[in-house]
Computed example of a mutant assay.
Amino acid sequence: MFGAFGILLTVSMVFGGYALAGGKISVILHALPFEMMIIGGAAAGSYILSNSGSILKQTFPSLLQAFKGPVWKAQDHEDLLCLLFQLLRLARSNPVELEEHIENPQDSSIFRAYPRVIADHEAVSIIADTLRSASLNYDDPYQVEDMLSKRIALIKEEQMHVPHALQSMADALPALGIVAAVLGVIKTMGSIDQPPEVLGKMIGAALVGTFLGVFLAYGLVAPIAKRLETVRGCDLAFYDVIKSVLVAGLHQHATNLCVEVGRQTAPEDLRPSFVALETALREIKRAA
């Protein structure tokens, strides 16, 4: 919603200000289809040329995600912390029973209680692999933390491919606008024998290319790329919460303290409150 409002505000202020200042919208509208064909077509072609098929397939869903916002909400972080709380308690009280849950998470009663978490293969894999490693005596907290940091860094690198590709396209758009403007100037020079009023319109149409390149780059594409990077950064923090709780568990801290460490790792606007989390944990203890 805010993304659509931002685009509407940007477009209305730019073109509205131009019209109120006495500019002729008709000049822009006349040149717009041809300039957009040159700039947009060249940008799309360059984007296809410079990116792999997997990135191209992810682009449209990623654009939708930029407007929808983070996948993980505050309730999801609370569910994750409750899941980790139960697994850590089980790891300390009955390691043999824990193996049944981490070897087959899809059939685990603990995992299945949190359908949104279990739907994320990467999150489930990180949890199961780390707990499995600990059961095999690979439980040095510092080594495990380093391993998880590298694994999350690889996930982040993959998740940031589309934002970086969009930013690269934004960086190229002003230059493509200049290409369109130069072509317009070439066209104008071919009609140099025309009267000044005709040449003026042709030069104005040529400059529309420069305007569109800069406007699309800094008014639309770059902000969308930045928004997508921010959204994915919030989602990636979900894995940092997992890492924090599991590493705290390997340090043999109390289970409640491990969960609190994870809660404080979550982004502030997605962090469940202390009271809400404590209430949820009490319900789990009561049901056990």
Rank of each mutant, 00 (worst) to 15 (best):
L83I: 11
E99C: 11
L83D: 03
E78H: 09
P95W: 07
L81F: 10
K57H: 07
R89G: 01
L64S: 04
L56Q: 10
L56E: 03
D79P: 07
L87W: 00
F60V: 15
A66V: 12
S62A: 15
L63D: 01
Q65N: 06
L87S: 01
Q86L: 15
K73Y: 07
A74E: 12
A91H: 11
Q65T: 13
P95V: 09
L84C: 07
R89E: 03
L90Q: 03
D79Q: 13
L80K: 03
D76S: 08
S62N: 11
K73M: 13
Q58W: 01
D76L: 04
L81Q: 06
N94L: 01
P61K: 02
E78T: 09
Q75H: 10
L90S: 05
W72K: 15
L88E: 01
L90V: 08
H101L: 11
S93K: 10
E97L: 15
L98H: 06
D79N: 14
Q86C: 12
L84N: 03
L90K: 10
V96T: 09
H101Y: 05
T59H: 02
P95S: 08
Q86E: 14
A66W: 03
C82Y: 08
L64N: 00
L88S: 02
L84H: 05
L83Y: 03
E100G: 11
L87T: 05
G69K: 09
P61T: 12
K73W: 06
P61L: 10
K73V: 15
L63I: 15
N94V: 02
T59M: 05
L80Q: 02
